[in-house]
Design a protein around this nucleic acid. Structure first.
Lengths: 198, 198
DNA sequence: AAGAGCATGTAAATGGTTACATGATTCC
DNA sequence: GGAATCATGTAACCATTTACATGCTCTT
């Protein structure tokens, strides 16, 4: 059900076509809640059926017959209600750490590959997230710009602060994963003995 | 599919009845891959059908007609193969951070509740995980004891090292979440203005 | 004229959650 | 005798993944 609220959060910035949703999603909300197009399109339709968003056909422009989705008052209320509803903390389900815990079952070479991939992925993520964080601080993030067109100045600082709070958390997490992988790599060297000392 | 390998990893320690699996699961693997009984029992049956585990009926003892599951050579091979197969990194899907990013939509009171719950949950998790970590270091963890009955001494250090590596990672993560929640709480105070200075 | 990107999905399978269902045994 | 816990699941539903499917428009 979170996808629904992830989409509402995005649409709260401004009305968009499904395609724009799908693209802007990738640049913001997807960092906390990934979803492929094949989930976004049907969910938008269901949200329209539920009255959380309104649909208006837009003619002209590239690809005739686009639909423009706009959050309704019901949608706004639903998002607010969800935000105010305490949710049970999600139980861990992490294939990466599952592997890490039982890495004695893997070939040493594969274990190294696994940890290198982990490190590199989160290094890249950290960079990417830091780049997003900068655009949030500078208020140059596209979705933020769109949102601020109808948010009065006094509230803007508050919005920026929460977005930055979350993205800083994501950056910290990514860096933690890098450190984790590096400790794992050091451990592999240790367990195998230092190179050249078979 | 990870559940299957989580269960194999657990059964690699020693043969167990489904009930023992379900209980020991909670004390070890569940920290990286949670699963309820209603998922464990059917999955064990499917694993037996696939020949990854063997089933023998055990009479006597409490509750006549228990089944004892033991990992087969095929199971061992499947676990090893899975461990050596690079898996794509899992995309983020985190309801907690989704909320955090859009906390401007929540009532300040609810936002505080949310962050307090987050902090307390991960504080407790950190404690719990640290307790598990100690039993791993000391080699008093039940599953580890069972496993070591058929693992020769020279390999034991390696096994302990990887388990500790993963659980230390989990502890670090939990602590990061506590720090995250605390930064959020500080932010709430800041945004609302310090108390007594309306 | 070809290729990138716009635009919109459907279908089938898998995996996971929630709620329910039942009966034995051991400890107090 | 009652409570806890041992012991084993089923059924229905919901969410997610993967793969496929189609056709337009703008740029080079």
């Amino acid at each position: 059900m979170s996808l629904r609220y992830a989409l509402l959060a995005l649409l709260s910035a401004e009305p968009m076509t499904a395609y724009e949703v799908s693209k802007q999603f990738g640049a913001s909300v997807a960092h906390v809640w990934h979803a492929p197009d094949s989930q976004i399109y049907p969910e938008l339709r269901r949200m329209a059926e539920a009255g959380l968003v309104s649909v208006t056909r837009v003619e002209g422009g590239p690809g005739g017959g686009k639909k423009r989705y706009a959050m309704t008052d019901d949608g706004r209320a639903a998002l607010r209600a969800w935000m105010n509803t305490p949710a049970p903390l999600s139980r861990p389900r992490d294939p990466q750490y599952l592997r890490a815990a039982y890495l004695d079952w893997a070939d040493p070479g594969q274990a190294r590959e696994f940890l290198l991939a982990h490190r590199d992925y989160y290094r890249e993520q950290a960079q990417l997230l830091e780049a997003v964080l900068v655009t949030l601080h500078e208020r140059t993030h596209p979705t933020l710009i769109a949102r601020f067109r109808h948010v009065p100045e006094p509230e803007r600082a508050r919005v920026v602060a929460f977005r930055c709070f979350a993205f800083q958390g994501l950056v910290d997490r990514a860096k933690l994963e890098v450190a984790f992988a590096e400790r794992g790599l050091a451990l592999l060297d240790e367990v195998a003995g230092p190179p050249g000392r078979s």
